[in-house]
Design a protein around this nucleic acid. Structure first.
Lengths: 251, 251
DNA sequence: ACCTCCATTTCGGGA
DNA sequence: TCCCGAAGTGGAGGT
């Protein structure tokens, strides 16, 4: 459970410690000035700079600069991590296949190295996802359309999966695409794609985009494609009270 | 440039060191058993487990478990990070607005804490991006279509930006959507959206999806929408030699 | 392995 | 600021 720390390790100590820690399944951080080479789906080179390198027992490699949410270079889980010496410096190599990718971190100056036999099995509990909105709509179809009967969840079609499928009070098929955040043009595209085949057999089929908000461009695009928009706040799904929805119909 | 490390710091030392390091603009790692609460666009709770916490001078907070490429909890750049004591334990708080979000990390057992005044200004050089393909096509339009004249790059329309716009040897408008990887249905959607208005004024307008490959479903969807596919390997953009492209026309 | 789609997506560019 | 689209997207779930 504890950590072991090496300050200013020698080249040999760095390589030996990394190899041993990888073999032991430790989580490792390295503080170092380094260069990074990447070759795979794209190709990259990162010149010398001071960074934090994070290695995980599942084969993940992350190189973090002092700014930014995302690592500047990385290798996802499943890659094989090795350490050796090249030109007198320690080098961390992370390889994976499918896609074939290679990341090499050249440690020019290693300030500190820590190994950590971390134990973490707690699941992340997350609410307010799109799935939560689906469930809300299935339980409260009137929040989307007054006469709506929600029939099917995650309905498969040759061109993708429809979030919610149902019928309205006039018996027309209703295809609903749900988004947990501001609707965008790509969401209109998605709904349009699903509608193509439904309207081929039933011109009266309705398509509704449900989202907390939509830009005017999105609304115009919906209108032009005879689709509807219903504003449903994502957080309505988390509250006990009935959602106060705004209904907007572009028929 | 160097790092400073504290092993098994007391609650007071942890909070004081974190506050001082944040003020100083250091990059910080904490190895600890912790719990995490998140409230913002969604809501989350992560039970006790051993993790690595990474804090950056730009306000980034990352909580990494011993598995996975992505952090289990995070706060992107721009958030305000503070440290204090609650119920006898150190708590790291990261707040931001737009969107309003709050992450709190409750340190139940702090094994190690490191501060690092990292200096890193090297730019990442990356090749093989979609932009590189755009440039290749603009310089070698014949790789896409024999009589193609590429006229405009990143052409703005009311429904999005067209990658490459041009005319063919018959003077027909050609809309080109470029993808650096296997084409998908969403890419067909995108091209369809751009084509709607062009075909409204010119029914002969052509739409071409350029990508290294496309599944049979994507090809069928293109056919059904009178669109074309041209297989252009992404790496053709990185090579000095002329690309050997496969031309496929679904007219 | 491929395909589709969500994500607390993040990030960058343009209006 | 909003909006749009790329990303070495990653990750999950289905076939």
């Amino acid at each position: 459970m504890g950590t072991t720390t090496w300050e200013d390790p020698t080249v040999e100590a760095t390589v030996a410690t990394l190899e041993e820690a990888v073999r032991a399944g430790d989580t490792i951080t390295v503080f170092a000035e380094c260069e990074v080479e990447y070759d795979g789906r794209a190709t990259g080179y990162l010149g010398p700079g001071e960074r934090v390198i994070l290695l995980k027992p599942d084969g993940t490699l992350l190189v973090h600069r002092p700014a930014g949410n995302d690592p500047v270079n990385w290798q996802p889980p499943g890659s094989t991590v090795t350490a050796d010496v090249a030109d007198g410096d320690p080098v961390i190599t992370a390889r994976r296949s499918a896609p074939d990718e290679l990341v090499r971190v050249f440690l020019r100056d290693t300030y500190q190295l820590t190994t950590f036999a971390a134990d973490d099995t707690a699941p992340l509990e997350l609410d307010g996802t799109e799935t939560d909105m689906h469930e809300y709509i299935l339980e409260h179809p009137a929040a989307v359309d007054d006469g709506l009967r929600a029939i099917e969840h995650e309905r498969d079609t040759p061109y993708g999966t429809i979030d919610v499928y149902g019928t309205d009070d006039a018996g027309r098929p209703v295809v609903i695409e749900v988004k947990r955040r501001q609707a965008s043009l790509t969401h209109v595209d998605q709904l349009n794609r699903y509608m193509e085949q439904f309207r081929a057999s039933n011109p009266d089929a309705r398509g509704i985009l449900v989202a907390p908000a939509a830009s005017s461009r999105v609304r115009r695009s919906l209108r032009e494609n005879d689709l509807e928009f219903v504003a449903l706040d994502e957080f309505a799904t988390n509250r006990g009270e009935v959602a106060s929805t705004t209904f907007e119909d572009f028929q």
